[in-house]
Amino acid sequence: MWLYLVKRIILAIANIAIAVTFLFLMIRAVPGDPAAVLLGTRATPEMKAQLHEQMGLDKPFIVQIATFFGGLLHGDLGFDVFSQRAVADIVFEQLPYTLELILVSILWAVLVAVPLGCYSAMRRNSLVDQVAGVVTVATIAIPSFVVAVYALLIFAVTLRWLPAIGVGIGFWDGLIYLILPAFAIGIGWVGYISRLVRASMLEILGENHIRMARSFGISEWRIIARYALPLAILPTVTILGVGIAWLLSSAVFIEVVFARPGIGTLIVNAVNTRNYPIVMGVVLVTTFLIVAATTLSDVVNAFLDPRTREKLGHGKR
């Protein structure tokens, strides 16, 4: 197991290094000049040269990337000339807003979807299962920003039950401001996860060890909770790991619709203004998040699945 963990971590670091280098190359391949955007029509050649020097853009490409990775080793993500602040400060100031949005969205989605999926599997073809089937497929099909706009119009503009924009102040206030954005992101996941759990559950419930458990007279709920769910949940764990990338991209739209701060808004602005240090900082952090989430889901999978545990413990058979 430990060897597996070490291998996964090395792979994760390699993934991050490759992704960041690739994006470093891509963003510089696109034409554009941060000086033109920042200084506007008042930019003189001298001022632009000065800004290029401050941003390190006058140096050869290989020096720029070496400086970036060299800085990383010292925990330095670079310096934003536009705002005269450290990139790490800017990124980590915005990151919690995106993380809380993603976590709350996925948490409520899992809390609703897993029982729903289990219930649908247990009561296959019942009215509840059929209605849930139609509704969940519909929620998967609707993009999160459409849900966001309608949720905002209904609950904030018309009913005025919830705030329309911002993140609030303090924990409880923040939770209230999270309701609509988290609903918009999570609703599609409810559909997705519940269908996934239902399908896995149906497969597991038909397996021999479950039939054996039933023959011992164990209650259906105990069979579901103790024997079926830990196996049925495995595909969901895998999907959640990969889904962090989807969640991050949904967050970009949702942050705009609800005027929330976050790294989505930050990177959109940074790309538009060719603010390379911020772009690289955000890319690094998001790549880390994605790689960490997929690695974590693999590890959790290995932990939950006795077959994988055994394989890792005893080597390949």
């Binding site: 904030a156 329309a164 924009i165 911002g166 705009v256 005027a259």
Partner: peptide, 10 residues
Amino acid sequence: TAERAYQAGD
């Protein structure tokens, strides 16, 4: 979004 926020009273 600003227009919706205005309508929502924010």
